[in-house]
């Protein structure tokens, strides 16, 4: 979760948007995290570079929890 937050904040920073303090499994990538479709593309690329998994390959992802499921990551703070 920490790593995902870090990657989201890199994307937000690149777009001069306000960085997030925290995220939860239910956080919506668009409405809660403030990412638009191009930001989500950048996030996908950054996640892929880190985990070698393209989270959008098999369809739309809307929440942080769905990303964690795709990556098979523990839903803890690590």
């Amino acid at each position: 979760m920490k790593k995902i937050l870090e990657l989201i904040n890199i994307v937000l920073e690149n777009r001069d948007k306000v960085k997030l303090e925290e995220i939860s499994e239910s956080s919506d990538l668009r409405t809660d995290c403030g990412l638009d479709s191009l930001d989500l593309a950048e996030l996908t690329v950054r996640i892929e570079a880190e985990y070698d998994i393209d989270i959008f390959e098999e369809g739309v992802i809307t929440t942080i929890g769905e990303i964690l499921n795709k990556l098979d990551l523990e839903k803890t703070d690590e």
């Binding site: 690149n14 593309a41 950048e42 996908t44 690329v45 950054r46 892929e48 570079a49």
Partner: peptide, 9 residues
């Protein structure tokens, strides 16, 4: 190519 552009800003 576009993905690579995004990864490196």
């Amino acid at each position: 190519v576009i993905r690579q552009f995004l990864l490196h800003n």
